[in-house]
Write a protein that binds this DNA or RNA. Structure first.
Lengths: 87, 87
DNA sequence: TATATTTGTGTATTATAATAAACATAAGGA
DNA sequence: TCCTTATGTTTATTATAATACACAAATATA
């Protein structure tokens, strides 16, 4: 039995991904906020797993060149009726 | 040269995915809204590509049993420094 | 055609994400 | 040690997502 992933865990993981990507680009929270025309507080909260808007998330995803990947993943999910198929 | 995906397109695709999944479960917007304790208007706007909160998106993703997939995809992105690597 | 259901839209209100500014703390470099 | 930078947190304000109605327009269904 695999533990179900929670919404909170996904938000925390999203924040971690942002932090890791940001640091790999050698940017501070302030740098990222300015690049995306967001406040540092918004970046700060996002990286710590708080709720955010889709626009904020996608701005960040886009900045790290992951928007195309996300789009393709969504397209794939739409095609397959059941991604968890055993076959 | 591949056209860059826009934030607007991703939001529209997210809405389409929701609509397609919802219909595959034979649910109305009202049904989905009630199941997730959201207003129908919120579901309506999301399906039509409007901005939303991360909580709303993840509630919907979770309802269609895609939260684990999303979590794993985020974990994978964190590990690989460059998902677009040619190697 | 009627009737019911679903979807799209409008308005007003409430809840909350985003912003701006300030300040504390911690870590690192001079 | 001092000075700088980055992060975390607070308070107040603004912008906007979410809600709760209502109603019109499609879209089934009898």
């Amino acid at each position: 039995m695999i533990d179900a992933v929670t919404i909170k865990e996904v938000k925390l993981q999203l924040g971690e991904l942002c932090k890791q990507k940001r640091q790999s680009y050698d940017m501070s929270q302030q740098d990222l906020a300015e690049a995306l025309e967001l406040s540092r507080y918004t970046v700060q909260k996002f990286e710590n797993g708080k709720n955010a808007t889709l626009d904020t998330v996608l701005k960040i995803v886009n900045h790290f060149d992951l928007l195309g990947n996300l789009y393709q993943a969504l397209k794939d999910l739409e095609k397959s009726n059941d991604i968890n198929s055993l076959y």
